[in-house]
Design a protein around this nucleic acid. Sequence first.
RNA 1: GCCGGGGUGGCGGAAUCGGCAGACGCAGCAGACUUAAAAUCUGCCGGGCCAAAAGCCCGUACGGGUUCAAGUCCCGUCCUCGGCACCA
Length: 804
Amino acid sequence: MDLEYRPQEIERKWKEVWRTTGVHKAHGHTNKPKYYCLDMFPYPSGNGLHVGHWRGYTISDVWSRYKRLLGYEILHPMGWDAFGLPAENYAIQNGIHPRVATEKNIANFKRQLEEIGAMYDWDREVNTTDPDYYRWTQYFFVKMFERGLAYRKKMPINWCPSCKTGLANEEVVDGRCDRCGAEVTKREMYQWMLKITAYADRLLDDLDKLDWPEHVKRMQRAWIGRSEGARIRFKVDGSTDEIEVFSTRPDTIYGATYMVLAPEHPLVQSITTEDRQADVERYVEESLRKSNIERQVVDKTKTGVFTGAYVKHPLVDRKLPVWVADYVLMDYGTGAIMAVPAHDERDFEFAKQFGLDIIPVVQPEDGEAEELYTGDGRMINSESLNGLGVEEAKREAVKLLSATGQAEATVNYRLRDWVFARQRYWGEPIPIVHCDMCGPVAVPEDQLPVTLPEVERYEPTGTGESPLAAIESFVNTTCPKCGGPAKRETDTMPQWAGSCWYFLRYADPHNHEAPFSQEAIHYWLPVDMYIGGVEHAVLHLLYSRFYVKFIHDLGLIQFDEPFQRLFTQGMITLNGAKMSKSKGNVVNPDDIIATYGVDALRMYEMFVGPPEDEAEWNTNGLEGVARFLGRTFRLVAGHAAHPVPGRDSLHKLRHRFVATLTERMESFRFNTSVSAFMEYVNALSNEAKQGLDPDTLETLTIAISPFAPHLGEELWSLLGHKESVFEAAWPTYDETWLKDDEVEIAIQINGRVRGKLVVAADISEADAIALAKRAPDIQEWVQGKEIVKELYVKGRLVNIVVKG
RNA sequence: GCCGGGGUGGCGGAAUCGGCAGACGCAGCAGACUUAAAAUCUGCCGGGCCAAAAGCCCGUACGGGUUCAAGUCCCGUCCUCGGCACCA
């Protein structure tokens, strides 16, 4: 018997076996329960995968294989989110068509993913750039258009001057482009928008039914940003204009002492008095010139100018001056506020700066009213509201104002509609035709897909027009409605479009009649476990939820949430930093595999730390795991040919191991799961001299297979099995073996351990204490002392409290 | 600023129902095997007092508290990571 562990040989052999037997294919209809375990599909970059990417893929593969051993029919697919800027930019720089570069990258990614030994069913591979796929991406857009959820609007949007395209709000981080880091500017453009705000409440409420990490749900809740309040209208003095504001504190209406309009507010022009014109114009111009970043600096001093105009207070005979200030943002609420400096920090600062009135209207229940007070309390200086609590006063104030039609209760969201157009080449063409007679018309479903034309140049124009606009043969077409001459929409969809529904396509990837069949979608969906990076918490994960709710409303699916359970794995760092090619701190899995084998890499990815936490890559740790696999191989291989009958010590170890491991697997604690293997193998090493029984050898082999599938198969065949180890069942345990007859307990004096004692596991409290008090070790601690208290914690310890 | 997570040996991390802190791994030290090395195997491995062992004392960011008993619960402080950031 050759007891040398040669991972490369074993791994090559079993990969070949898996390819020929097709053991990883998902079968649509069996009598097993289904389980859909999904990875966030990657963007196939030119850099390939590093060990950081592999962590998530390894977790999902271990989980899929574990679930399979538990008897589930598994869907574990993989595909490519292959539209996007990097391929396009690379194409421009090197004169290679993005499709060619993308195909090459996909081939490399696929090779690497096959290397992991993951049980992907490659028959179901999905590629967002495949016209057979994006036909359906366009189909869903058409459906949205038909229902008024996709609309075109001229508005100032976020523009990345470096990527030369518009961006969604979600893609702007700290005023910078999420992708390239360039400072984002505003640009007034016609844009295709998706009305995600129509789903705001459902997107918010349904978070409650998801088994997702709390912090991800929290991020989505914050992003949607629901806040209840009121819209209140103020009449401009000496004019028919009204200024509408949104306020979450209508209770403080009597404390409003001035109004503020955002510099972009449409009323600024018309209400400004002649003598104030020059100042206001200058201020507005300056504000608009400032970048988002400058305007977002919080601790800067407040700036603003008086417009010369006043509004009438809706409830009392008082005039409030109207100011323009950039601390009010045009794209939240109505772009105008009523300022209550006594109870709002920002208004207070502004009022102090410009010497405006401050009228307190809320008094804290106990103690003095401070100049600025934002807490709860009782209303004062508020006529009929006086004496009410804040919550009650909010309701009363709205009632009071709405009686004269000056206000109504409303809900406001931070979430904006989704800017869905990109002025770039490498994306799904938006399937719309612009007709002078009929306006924008959707391309009929039977004419989809609108395919990307072959082009010579795909440089972005930077003018706000897509490169497609220059291709006459693409642009010029006829109107599907009236048949007259018309022009195609030349913007493309953002990269998120294809990933919003790809998980549905895996259920039925080759369907030419529909995005998926009812039968397939019914069987496999929703996704039971979704694994990926937390960076998508409010982008992909919010967009996908929106799409699924929309597709649900179309009546195509019964469920309205795509991902029942979400797991976000932590990053792998090297030298404390995220791995990236530009930082030069990338560990390439290909090198690791050549030295230690892929099973060792998989095992180490699981062992490196709690899967949800960030973890530092350490080659020494990998070596330790590789050593452990070698020990395991020698242990099982060395006893496979001549097992001995089982004995109690082996039964006990085995049942305890299975109980511990299963518990840790179920709670997704893979790092301690690996520890459980190590402890078990260490214990078995001591037992090995007396031989090992078949149950022990098989249990260890089956259990380790999800982690080290090649090793698992090899050992399983050494144990004489002809079929795959993944046809076996996850081992079970018997409670009776978890109990000890005798246990060692600690004897504590005043809470400190002073001795040990072996007692029967079911010993009574009285007996345990009596035995403890007689123990020789503790005599010196109790002699001549008064015993105040005695406790026995079952199976753990006796504590004797003494005095003196 | 607001919200949330987290501070444990030389290192990664165990232990979260309050019950013997440091599982497992790495690094280190000593030994076995070997002509030798690698590989493999065995033992030790938080700090202090002590020649050593036994033993005692200290020890889970810091300061208090509750409790027979606190890494774990409560109050306060510091640090760190993540999210949001003039959202009315």
